[in-house]
Amino acid sequence: MSVDEKTVRRIAHLARIAVTDEEVGPLGAELNNILAFVEQLGTVDVSGVEPMTSVLPMAMKKREDAVTDGGRADAVIANAPETEDHYFLVPKVVE
């Protein structure tokens, strides 16, 4: 499978990473190298094999449905680039 420039731009947009025109070519080549490297996995017979989920069979830990944390709005927003009254500020989304 080979990735063309259009696909590189589409993937970059899905990944929300801006790419310049100069970056598209080299990125495409690198992605193709990696995809060529993983191509060999297609030769493995995986019929009837379950995807791995854990090292040892283990039941997912559960806890009571209770409030265990909270009331730390100051700490939550402390590292945000822009805030107002305990809200994160972002550019306008809806006109």
Binding site: R16, A18, V76, I77, N79, A80, P81, E82, F88, V90, P91, K92, V93
Partner: peptide, 15 residues
């Protein structure tokens, strides 16, 4: 949005 670097853009997707 919540931490780290922010570089502005013309809209939220560009940001």
């Amino acid at each position: 949005v919540r931490y780290g670097l922010r570089v502005p853009g013309k809209d939220i997707a560009a940001m």
